[in-house]
Design a binder for these strands. Structure first.
Lengths: 125, 125
DNA sequence: CTACCTGCAAAAGGTTTGCATAGCC
DNA sequence: GGCTATGCAAACCTTTTGCAGGTAG
């Protein structure tokens, strides 16, 4: 991957904003200091960085994709009230892929798990 | 929910086609015998039927939503090769929601799990 | 120099919605 | 008769892509 200023900015934005930003968040965030950056470039770089394993792309049901600077295995919980995305560690899923392979015979490459509910701040409202 | 011919057709299509059809599948399928049915009506009815719990909506990362006549708890595996969607029973996830609630304090309403890989037909290619 | 990258704007899905008309109860 | 549903088409949102010019190595 050749160096580019825009790619560096995109990567740093994801790293410095652990809110699991969307492409549009990254774009808006960068726009103020870099009025010429384009949304297409942001998308291209987020996807390229994810393809190279430097960040992780999180597909959200009925919502925009989000990006995560953490690339180790963990899961995400989205609060239906405030929209915030939280990291969740689930040791019990370590064996999930091999369990599925054993019971179905499929070759598992990947699984996506998204949890919806209410976070600690919102559950008392 | 008031009766409508179109809603009945949409529901029957989902029930009679256990391929986890997309809205477009349902639309194309019905179009031949009902040339006037509209895609908007198909979407409205699929969503309405799902809201009323008669069918289940499956959000597919990077793909169209699919609909399932089965409403009991089970999961889905999508073959990256042929695109077919398979049902997977995972008893080990029965306790997932309560496990998450215990470790995080969140109120869990729902979780979505999609597995990607290769089915038994495709894995030998 | 050349391959890769950018900005811009248009296109491409997939899904929802506004409106006037039609149908259920 | 009134409320809900329909067909049609336009709008919407997010993401991708074609192109002509710019930049890293």
């Amino acid at each position: 991957m050749k160096y580019s200023k825009q790619r560096e900015l995109v990567l740093n934005t994801v790293i410095e904003n652990p809110v699991h930003p969307t492409a549009d968040f990254v774009y808006s965030h960068l726009r103020s200091a870099n009025p010429n950056i384009s949304l297409g470039t942001v998308y291209r770089n987020l996807n390229l960085l994810a393809d190279h394993g430097l960040i992780h792309k999180i597909a959200i049901p009925n919502g925009s994709d989000r990006f995560d600077f953490r690339t180790d295995e963990h899961y995400h919980m989205i609060c239906d009230c405030c929209g915030e995305v939280f990291d969740v560690e689930l040791d019990s899923l370590k064996e999930l892929d091999s369990e599925i392979e054993k019971s179905t015979g499929f070759v598992v490459r990947h699984h996506d798990l998204i949890i919806n509910g209410l976070c600690n701040k919102c559950k008392h409202k």
